[in-house]
Design a protein around this nucleic acid. Sequence first.
DNA 1: TCACCTAAGTAGATTTTTGCAACTCAGGTG
DNA 2: CACCTGAGTTGCAAAAATCTACTTAGGTGA
Lengths: 161, 161
Amino acid sequence: MTGHTQSPDPTLDPELCPVHRSLEIVGDRWTMLILRRALLRGTTRFADFRDGLHIAPNILTDRLGKLVDEGIMERHGYREPGSRERFEYVLTEAGREFNMLVSALAGWGAKNRPLENSRRVDAYTLDDQRPVELAYVTPEGERVDPQRVSTRRRDLGDNPR
Amino acid sequence: MTGHTQSPDPTLDPELCPVHRSLEIVGDRWTMLILRRALLRGTTRFADFRDGLHIAPNILTDRLGKLVDEGIMERHGYREPGSRERFEYVLTEAGREFNMLVSALAGWGAKNRPLENSRRVDAYTLDDQRPVELAYVTPEGERVDPQRVSTRRRDLGDNPR
DNA sequence: TCACCTAAGTAGATTTTTGCAACTCAGGTG
DNA sequence: CACCTGAGTTGCAAAAATCTACTTAGGTGA
């Protein structure tokens, strides 16, 4: 009998679930596309994001502003010879750590929505350019197939509510 | 002088970037929250998603329908003793593979938005319950710190456009 | 000096998507 | 036969995204 009183579900509160906290930042239609472009192409400038993504400038302003507020990007002035000062948006350390998220998205898409002429999204070590992959590993360093991995919370019993 | 004519940027087309193809599916404010609940709590029923996420039923209908159309969930009839047939939404293999994405989101959130009382999101092997983590690894099985990994495309030179 | 250029935005009208609340529908129970 | 429950549907209001045009600040060339 699960005659439980509906406790105020704690997973509701974004504060209590790290997945939800991340999604508060990147869970809209544009932010992750902006970060992908920054991570995969090194884009930093307003006009390059705007033209490359075909995003409306007011939306881009809003999203870049939020990313700066969140400490994911920094707005830096720069000056090219013979131009006035302009601004660029560069990833912070926290922003660069979205590379695992980009790799996870790329991995899912490549496997589950394969396409003949699709571009590859590779990852490699910065120092010596060795290829790396995103994978589940045990503390002993053994790779485990994602299909053999569960993220199910064990403190819930089998109550899915 | 980069007097090149603006070639129709190929990364624009979602068809050509696996990250974009994934985001076409999970790049909105609700879909990933639904998948998180399915993966972390094993939720399958309409009312449990609705009440657990505080999502409007019309939005939930729409998102579950899309997930079914995309082959990420399957709508199954079930019957509890003394009830009529009802329906549940269960993850397919493609859907379960979003566990890496959930782990990536959880990893970013836990590291970059740490919070005292936050719930942990762990992953473990299905067969013998050993803990696993999401990590970048070389083909030889060496773990590499995400800050030492780049996902930058090398075929672009340093043109970020 | 002045017309023109560029990058980085703002501003306002329109369209689309969400959110909310109430209602429906189908079958089962007392 | 009145009521219950889960799985939705419908209609309207509110919020967000989109499209387009305009602004701003400084630099260049004539």
